[in-house]
């Protein structure tokens, strides 16, 4: 789904993209997330968060295991999983950028940043770059509305984002990966 205006270099060697955890490791992560949270009241969301924190997404194999642990139907768990924007059902890129597109950020030109991401970095909204480096998702407000436009990059908020500042942030990621 990613638009590619120009060819991308291949993923750097040794990066996470080519070291998919095995099925057994995935199951172990799911079971650990369930074990830690199953005794909470209303445990479904905490479990889904815990799985995604470990794996970056919630694999299909998690549904049956959660349903069994919480004595819910598979449909119940599927319903919760798919209701919330945060939960992914496939692995994201190695970095996740959430770009705010709510009103305050629109007032300060977040669309310009969104276009720049797609055109310069090949990272369209809801897409992942072809080298698997970056996933871009929309977010509706980061509570940083006096310093718009804002984005969340790997869990850290950045404000007053311009295309130039965005280039610097992404160059920083690339440098980190090479190091």
């Amino acid at each position: 789904m990613t638009k590619r205006p120009e060819p991308r270099p291949p993923a750097p060697a040794g990066s996470g993209a080519d070291t998919d955890p095995s099925r057994a490791a995935i199951d172990a992560a799911i079971d650990a997330a369930i074990a830690e949270n199953r005794d909470l009241r209303g445990a479904t969301l905490p479990i889904l968060h815990a799985i995604q924190d470990r794996l970056g997404y919630v694999p299909p194999a998690a549904l049956d295991r959660i349903a069994k642990a919480l004595n819910l139907s598979r449909a119940d768990v599927h319903g919760v999983l798919t209701f919330y924007h945060d939960f992914r059902t496939s692995p994201p890129g190695r970095h996740v950028l959430k770009l705010c597109r709510a009103e305050a950020c629109q007032a300060m030109g977040c669309e310009r940043v969104e276009r720049h991401l797609a055109e310069r970095h090949g990272a369209a909204m809801h897409g992942t770059t072809s080298d698997g480096r970056l996933t871009v998702e929309p977010v509706y407000c980061l509570g940083n509305c006096a310093l718009s436009p804002s984005l969340l990059l790997d869990g850290r908020v950045h404000g007053r984002v311009t295309p130039e500042r965005l280039d610097a942030l992404l160059a920083g990621l690339a440098a980190e990966e090479r190091a």
């Binding site: 209303g42 479904t44 969301l45 319903g79 919760v80 919330y84």
Partner: peptide
């Protein structure tokens, strides 16, 4: 988990209950 409607009080209660 990224849902605006969960700021509505009854939707929030449902979400707290894991639904």
């Amino acid at each position: 988990a990224g849902s605006y409607i969960c700021g509505e009080e009854t939707a929030m209660l449902e979400s707290l209950e894991g639904k």
